[in-house]
């Protein structure tokens, strides 16, 4: 079964009198365990596409299926459950909780989904270990470097064992070398868990980490 299917998805933002078409009849299929790179210039609609796939935004038209389920028909409550249990999201702006340390930032996810405490703690620590943050677990986001924060956010996205991970610009704030390290970590984590992933980047050099690359320009997808 495909991890993600977009069928003719259109997203129109309305700001005052203006209509901005951020996505125009976008159709896309991401297979289970597939890693897809989504590349495109700034303002091309990458974040919009990711947000729609993650149930953060609803499309103006079209259908979105995640793991075979049409989330476009979901109620607000179903969408909350969906975000809680089925997807992991890494935001372009990272968005860690400033007053929680690295471990707690991962545990927030478990708190919302009422997961068993001890198992959640073990999972959080294992993830942070794998992401090379074993020695930084008790540090607040303000005490971490940009790359470290990026990795904490990746750990948080993997906390709820999602079938689909959506990662927005994981390397934009990092230099090439660090960017490659983070990409390798993401790919390693995603492959090890048999999870599908969509990774947004505007850096062509990062695309070789993905199984497939899709380009987007002005809201239009091109294989």
């Amino acid at each position: 079964m495909s991890a993600l299917v977009l069928n003719n998805v259109r997203k129109v933002y309305q700001s005052g009198e203006d209509h901005i078409v951020a996505l125009d009849h976008a159709s896309l299929t991401v297979g289970a365990e597939e890693i897809l790179a989504l590349v495109g210039p700034s303002g091309s609609g990458k974040t919009t596409l990711l947000s729609i796939a993650g149930g953060l935004l609803s499309p103006s038209e079209g259908e979105v299926l995640v793991g075979g389920e049409a989330i476009t028909a979901y109620s607000a409550k179903q969408l909350t459950d969906f975000r809680r249990n089925s997807v992991g999201f890494v935001f372009q702006s990272v968005n860690l909780v400033p007053f929680l340390n690295a471990r707690e930032n991962l545990l927030v996810v478990a708190e919302f989904s009422k997961r068993e405490k001890k198992a959640a703690r073990e999972r959080a620590e294992r993830l942070l270990d794998e992401l090379g943050l074993g020695h930084r677990m008790n540090n607040l986001p303000g005490q971490l470097s940009g790359g470290e924060r990026q990795r904490v956010a990746i750990g948080r996205a993997l906390m709820n064992e999602p079938a689909l991970v959506l990662i927005d610009e994981p390397t934009s704030a990092l230099d090439t070398k660090l960017g490659e390290q983070v990409m390798e970590l993401i790919v390693g984590e995603v492959k090890a868990r048999n999870t599908a992933a969509v990774i947004v980047t505007h850096d062509q050099r990062m695309t070789h980490y993905a199984d497939r690359t899709v380009a987007i320009t002005d809201g239009v997808l091109a294989a």
Binding site: T80, D81, R83, R84, N85, F89, V108, V109, F112, R156
Partner: peptide, 9 residues
């Protein structure tokens, strides 16, 4: 918003 995005009701 972040809390809701990661599954909080």
């Amino acid at each position: 918003g972040v809390f809701k995005a990661i599954g909080a009701s």
